[in-house]
Design a protein around this nucleic acid. Structure first.
Lengths: 112, 112
DNA sequence: CATTATACTTCGCCTGTCAAGGTATATTGT
DNA sequence: ACAATATACCTTGACAGGCGAAGTATAATG
């Protein structure tokens, strides 16, 4: 929606893995941190977020477990796996490469 | 594909418009120029390319006409419209904004 | 005690990509 | 002469990811 919706597509997994590189976390909090990191300019839609969790878990890049909250709603925590860490590094490398390519193709100088 | 396929998604229109900012051109040649600009690392699939032309033309961002080749296969040329030029500028602005956001979210410093 | 915030889940639609197949013409190799 | 290759365009159908919409459940707040 509005700015950047289509442009972020393809980065969802990277963003989530990046979050989990900093330690286990649960969905709602991950999305809030994205919202905060971008100064409110962006956040994942819930359906997108949870779809991504399923995808990443099925691929073995993350695992999940229920937190044992004494109060409030239950939380499903996610933890990044070794495979996930490797994938994260690969995705970062891809991004660096793709970024250069895109700038080349849309005709912007590197430091604009 | 391989590297960067999903990451380029969402830039197809921008790439094509950027090409046409340099003057009228036809599909096959546009794709070859993309191939060449990226040093052979990337090119659009034909189906993707022609789908994008239809989309852009329907939106009024480009118009098309048949070239009058005396030899070789016929060529359909595309020309960017004022609306297309405006859209191009907007997409460039979006990219600049999205780029910063992505780097923030996947945790890379600006000048890495 | 109703509303809001937290937190997760699923269904079905939409859009963009792409593999696969097709058409037509000109050049090049044998 | 004719097969193969290059140029150039087009369409169909499948697939994947994003997302609107709706639902479930619990706790805090006014």
């Amino acid at each position: 929606m509005s700015i950047a919706s289509d442009l972020i597509r393809g980065h969802t997994d990277t963003i989530i893995l990046a979050c989990l590189m900093g330690g286990d976390n649960y969905g709602y909090e991950i999305n809030k941190s994205i919202h905060q990191k971008t100064g409110g300019r962006y956040e994942l839609k819930e359906a997108t977020l949870y779809t991504a969790f399923r995808r990443l878990e099925q691929a073995g890049h993350i695992s999940s477990y229920w937190g044992n909250e004494q109060t409030g709603a239950r939380r499903r925590y996610y933890r990044i796996s070794d495979s996930g860490r490797g994938t994260y590094q690969a995705l970062i490398a891809e991004w660096k490469s793709a970024k250069g390519m895109i700038e080349q193709l849309i005709q912007l100088e590197e430091n604009e």
